[in-house]
């Protein structure tokens, strides 16, 4: 009996030893991975603070660290950085609010109303979105250029035109996502309201929207960041430096013509990236949830 107990004891301690070894190994792997993931971010901090604006020959803490790059970035009249930031916030903000309104209302119809062509429409929306916007850039360009001759504030070089093009893509995957959320809200709720004489509009605005609010926030943030990060459409439709969005402006710094401006690019990239990063990291659990709902069945 005691022999058996001793063996058992031995086995347990060797198991816990093995477990400790594997934990240390795992920690080492995790640290290596973290270095891989964080390295570019550290690099950009160091490049932003290094006044020599050189790409290489950097130590992680630059010898004469200072804020010269930021000063240069804020005071360059040819490359108006704060204009770009404001343009990006304005365009992404308006696009997000409008596109979320459009998708939520459409998703309501798909989830709660029954009408001819409903399923065909749902399928068509998915298939059409598969055609990459980028491939039709020429035609999109014309669709903005020509109206500009009739209504000047809608043409090329205008943010209104850019927002319109972004809205053209709002009838897409997000409708499926929103419809998925709406389907999870029991229909008994709105049927009861309907018995009391509520109209569809009242059910939508007073019953369902409050229930949807948490998920609307997540989808809204994702949509905002998606628009904020767009480069191609903004690059094609805007060509004057004062009209650029932040991403287009930042890409300009790394062009050959501005090869010496890595310092300013890094300073601008930090300002552009940190708020987004903070939002993501703060909301990571909700965002992970938003990403998987609809696709992953749990």
């Amino acid at each position: 009996m005691s022999n058996l107990a001793a063996t058992y004891q031995n086995l347990r301690s060797s198991q816990s030893f093995m477990k400790r070894v594997s934990l240390v190994l795992k920690l080492i792997v995790a640290v290596i991975l973290v270095v891989f993931s964080v390295f570019p971010v550290l690099w950009i901090f160091s490049a932003a603070l290094d006044p020599t604006s050189q790409l290489g020959s950097q130590s992680l803490i630059p010898p004469q660290a200072g804020f010269q790059n930021f000063q240069k970035l804020f005071n360059d009249p040819l490359l108006p950085f704060w204009n770009w930031v404001w343009n990006s916030i304005k365009v992404s903000g308006i696009t997000t609010i409008l596109s979320i309104s459009i998708t939520t209302m459409a998703a309501f119809a798909f989830s709660r109303l029954r009408f001819a062509g409903r399923i065909t429409m749902l399928k068509a929306i998915l298939l059409i979105q598969v055609f990459p916007n980028l491939l039709a850039l020429g035609a999109i360009y014309l669709m903005i250029e020509q109206p500009g001759h009739i209504i000047p504030w809608l043409g090329l070089e205008t943010h209104a035109g850019l927002i319109l093009v972004y809205l053209g893509g709002s009838m897409g995957m997000n409708i499926w996502l929103m419809k998925g959320f709406l389907d999870t809200i029991p229909r008994a709720i709105d049927e009861a309201a309907m018995l009391d004489g509520a109209t569809n509009w009242q059910i939508f605005t007073q019953l369902l929207l409050p229930l949807l609010r948490p998920i609307l926030v997540v989808v809204g943030i994702l949509a905002f960041i998606g628009t904020y990060g767009d480069f191609v459409l903004a690059r094609i439709l805007l060509s004057k430096a004062e009209n650029y969005t932040l991403m287009v402006g930042l890409a300009l710094f790394t062009n050959n013509q501005f090869a010496q401006n890595w310092g300013q690019f890094s300073a601008g990239a930090l300002i552009g990236a940190l708020p987004v990063m903070a939002i993501y990291l703060a909301l990571q659990d909700q965002i992970a949830g938003g990403l998987t709902v609809g696709a992953v069945k749990e």
């Binding site: 209302m105 119809a109 055609f131 020429g138 669709m143 009838m171």
Partner: peptide, 24 residues
């Protein structure tokens, strides 16, 4: 009636996605 809920989105879809597709 049901399409009233999505007429804005559909209009943008026609203008900036479907038409550019057909044009391409």
């Amino acid at each position: 009636y049901a399409y009233r809920w999505m007429v804005t989105g559909l209009s943008f879809l026609v203008l900036f996605t479907i038409y550019p597709m057909l044009f391409t």
